[in-house]
Design a protein around this nucleic acid. Sequence first.
DNA 1: ACCGGTTTTATTTTT
DNA 2: TAAAACCGGT
Length: 713
Amino acid sequence: MALDLSLLNPQQRQAVVRTEGPVLVLAGAGSGKTRVIAHRVVYLLERGVPARAILAVTFTNKAATEMKDRIARLAGGTPDSRRVLVSTFHAFGLKIVREQHEKLGLPAKFAVLDAGDQAALAKRLLREVKVDDKRFDVGRLVAILSRLRSGGAPGHPDDEYELCAGELLPRYELGLRAMGAVDFDDLLNLPLRLFAQHPEVLQTYQSRYRYLLVDEYQDTNGAQLELLEQLAGVRRNLCVVGDDDQSIYAWRGAQVRHILEFDRKFPGCSEVCLEQNYRSNGNILDAANAVIGKNPGRKPKKLWTERGRGPNLRLVSAPSEEAEARYVADEIVRVSYEEKIPLREIAILCRTNAQARPFEEALRLAGVRYRVVGGTSLFDRKEVRDLIAYLRAALNPRDEVALLRIVNVPARGIGDQTVARAQELARARKCTVWDVFSGAPAELVYASERIGAFVALMRKYGEKLAGKGFSEAARELVGEVGLFEEARRGAQSLPAQARKVEAIESLLSQLIDYEKREEQKVAERLLSRSGLEEDDDEPFAQGLPGYLNRLALDSKEADGEDGDSVTLMTLHAAKGLEWRCVFLCGMEEGLLPHSGRGFDDSVSGPRAEGALNLEEERRLCYVGMTRARERLVLTRSVERVRRGKPIPRTPSRFLDDIPSELVDAIDLSGPRQETPKAVQEAKARSFFDSMSELLGDAAPAGQAPARPGRAPR
DNA sequence: ACCGGTTTTATTTTT
DNA sequence: TAAAACCGGT
């Protein structure tokens, strides 16, 4: 069946049909960007471009998954569409590194270090250099290391952190290589290095991927742009889609410049501008336009809509952050009952993760189901990280971060002394700690026997975990090592014990699910395709290593999509999403134009200095506002308790930019507002419902019963 | 290894 | 202020 382009507006159609050469699609918020990309892919397929010649790159796994679905749905009868590679930058980098690991001198199953692992490594190195590892915030060091090695602009040269990081850099890279591990930056840098050193490899990829599409182009950093340029080669079939007004990742190296100067990098490109907004009511759009309009140096754009004006925005001033949260919770209850807006169509957006707390409490109190997105849950838990470290260490004992984490967990008599000695020996001999352990435990007189046992343990599970049935093997490992007992021991209260055990269990069951799904996939492929040639287009490896890689690249694993619940997340996490009703909270100076600290180490670039990140903060505000389809409520608190003492807060300057005729102001200070009757009723019903559930009665007729989305760590 | 009490330190966003 | 990190005693 043919793709129907008549449903697209003329600009969208242009963006779909211009298949050759560089194309810049400026896609305003809610202008149907994803739709355009999906159509473009399917259009290419219909024009006879083989699916495997198309590469679509996104930034998040969620976006990639969504895009895949969208394409599959649109392509309908073209089953081949599933061979289009839709991947994040990092996953794509991983794929290349994996395919070329030999040329890069990496073992077949290398670990991908996440931020925590990076910090652990940096800390170890600090100690090795005998720098007081408490004088530095390792997290910040890691951030600087990252900037240094992804070729970002150098920071203030005399900053002690810069100096320290510079000192650490070579050791850090050596450490990675010795471990046979890579970090996030490597996933982009190693392919680039490879391309530079082996032009024939570059050519392979160039001729494989002949049509490139990039989503959220405004968020690309230097390495990512470089990668795109290399891949596009002389063919230059590169279509980038993005919105300079939604560039919010400068602190991570993203440069708006990339989208603003696309036409200089790729002369002769076509440019399409999508300005019709299909998402928001007129009032919301006008307000958002007014806010973003103040930013200098943007690509001129004026979004318009055919939708009605909708209700006015609301600006709520609360006396305290608790009151702010209470108002939001009450309003959610009201809106979901009176206007029948389902909870899944409501979001609370904050600038920082820390702001979420009072809202969680208020929602729980009001009996509103919610889910917090972003502040990772399961994988932050110590016991889960321990188990993961076991898996990693068994698969690749050179992975020292993992190995050292678990040598003595649970205590098996390989204490700090022994480990320190082993590390020294390893350094002296220029080998890994694992080599010391496995080679000559006799030299570690004391613990040789125990080390022997540990080495045997790792070897045993190294084999078991590498192949089929790894989830079973993992369970066995947990049993043999006694991780449940360890978890119980490490907990004070009984419920805490239960939670820990539960956390381990849920990781294990995730492994089972994963393995099952993978087997299913393989079976499907065998059925649908006779060929076994299958050059494995998956960016990720098979089996457990694949799972672990995914884990590193996708912190927020499968959120329980189920159930109807309010979403609570940061503005950054909200990009690309939309809700009928949005609460944008903490509209205050210092919070929404966020003033982290006088100087920001992420952008010490050429200009930028005095203006702090005001432009980016403004964009962030714009992103938040444009998430709303029907109803937008801005809230602020008149004072906020900080460091124990109440601090008066001034309203965000962005509020001043919104035309007042679009806004209803509500002031919650003064005599206590009485709870509206509707809210009282709603609360009572919600309470009734939750009691019914507790008592095991038949399913309640009304709204979903109260239940918190996630326990606050 | 574990505990209890004391002292810091918090204040960004995340692939 | 509150939570985490820290310390020193068992």
